[in-house]
C-alpha cells in the first residue's frame, strides 16, 4: 500500500460519531443561534478537528501503529478541541452577584482551579502510564473511554481560562501562572518520552499490522519504533507548550485590553475624589 492509498482508505466512518457531531452542531445552532460568525467558525473548527482526530487515518495509525500519531490525537482531543469549542460558545456578559462584588471575592474558587489543573495535567500523565497506554492501544472500549475522558478533562482544564461566563474566569495574571505550570508539567513528560531509552508504550513496538503497512511506515516514512517514540515525546514537549503559550498570550491580551468600559468607569470612581491640588 502506498501513502496515498493509505490516506484515502484509512478513514473510519463511525455512525455514532456522525450522530454525535451532527447533534452537537444542531444543538449549537438551536440554542445559541448565529450571533457572531467568528465564534461559529471556531465551533465548526472544533468539530472538524474532532472528526479528523477520530475518523481520519490518524486514528488508524494511533490505534495500531504509531505512538506519535497517538500523541497527535491526544493533543487534539485534550488541548485543541476543548479550547476551540469553549471559544466557540457565545460570551455571557459579566453579571457578578451583588454580594460577591461587594465582598471583593474571586469569582472562581481555588479548589475548582486546582481540580481543573489536575484534570488537565493528570490526563496527560495518566494515559501515558505504560499499562494504560498499552491498554488504550489494544482494547477498543479503553480507547473510547480515553477519547471521552480526554475531551472531558480538556474542557475542565480550559474552563477557568476560556469559560463563556466571564465573571467566573481566573484573573489574567493568575491564568498565566496556571498555563505556565501546566506547560512545565507536560514539558517534563515530553522530555522523558523523548529521551527515554525504554519503550513507554510497548504495544507500538510490536504492532499487529492489520493493514499491512508496517514496511511503509518503517522504511518509507522512516518511523522506526525508537524514532516514533522520540517524535511522540517531542510533540508533547514543543507543540503542546506552544498551545499553552498561545493561551498565555491570549490571557495577557485580555489583561491589557481589559473591559474598556469597566475600566473607564472604575477610573472615574477613584480619580474624582483624589484629584490633588499640587499640579
Amino acid at each position: 500500500m502506498t501513502t496515498t492509498q493509505f490516506l484515502f482508505s484509512g478513514w473510519d466512518w463511525n455512525p455514532v460519531m456522525a450522530v454525535f457531531c451532527l447533534g452537537a452542531l444542531l444543538n449549537y445552532f438551536v440554542v445559541f443561534r448565529i450571533v457572531n460568525w467568528r465564534r461559529v467558525g471556531l465551533f465548526l473548527l472544533a468539530v472538524l478537528l474532532f472528526v479528523i482526530a477520530i475518523c481520519s487515518p490518524l486514528n488508524t495509525l494511533a490505534r495500531n501503529y504509531l505512538f506519535s500519531a497517538h500523541m497527535a490525537q491526544h493533543l487534539l482531543l485534550l488541548l485543541v478541541v476543548p479550547a476551540l469549542w469553549l471559544l466557540g460558545l457565545p460570551r455571557q456578559t459579566p453579571t457578578p452577584l451583588p454580594q460577591e462584588a461587594a465582598a471583593g471575592k474571586t469569582p472562581i474558587t481555588s479548589r475548582r482551579v486546582v481540580l481543573s489543573w489536575t484534570a488537565g495535567v493528570g490526563a496527560m500523565w495518566l494515559w501515558h502510564l505504560p499499562a494504560l497506554c498499552n491498554a488504550a492501544a489494544g482494547t477498543p472500549w479503553v480507547q473510547q473511554l480515553q477519547t471521552v475522558s480526554l475531551l472531558a478533562m480538556g474542557t475542565l482544564f480550559w474552563w477557568p481560562v476560556l469559560s463563556p461566563q466571564r465573571s467566573r474566569l481566573l484573573a489574567p495574571l493568575a491564568a498565566v501562572g496556571y498555563l505556565f505550570t501546566a506547560c512545565m508539567a507536560c514539558t517534563l513528560l515530553g522530555i522523558y518520552l523523548t529521551f527515554s531509552p525504554v519503550a513507554v508504550c510497548a504495544a507500538y513496538h510490536h504492532p499487529q499490522d492489520p493493514l499491512g503497512i508496517l514496511p511503509l511506515i518503517h522504511q518509507g516514512w522512516g518511523l522506526t519504533p525508537a524514532v516514533d517514540q522520540q517524535l511522540g515525546g517531542l510533540l508533547m514537549w514543543v507543540p503542546a507548550c506552544l498551545i499553552y503559550l498561545s493561551g498565555v498570550i491570549g490571557q495577557l491580551t485580555r489583561w491589557y485590553v481589559g473591559d474598556q468600559a469597566e475600566a473607564a468607569s472604575t477610573f472615574a470612581a477613584i480619580a474624582k475624589p483624589s484629584h490633588p491640588g499640587n499640579t
Binding site: V176, F180, C183, V227, W237, C241, L245, V248
Partner: peptide
C-alpha cells in the same frame, strides 16, 4: 511587555539548539 513574557517562556524550550552538533537525532 507581552513579548517580554513570551520570550521568557520560549527561552526555556529551545536550549537544544546549542546541541545540534551533539547528535540528538533529526527529529529533535
Amino acid at each position: 511587555a507581552t513579548s517580554g513574557v513570551v520570550i521568557a517562556l520560549l527561552s526555556f524550550g529551545v536550549w537544544a539548539h546549542h546541541m545540534f552538533a551533539v547528535g540528538l537525532g533529526h527529529m529533535a
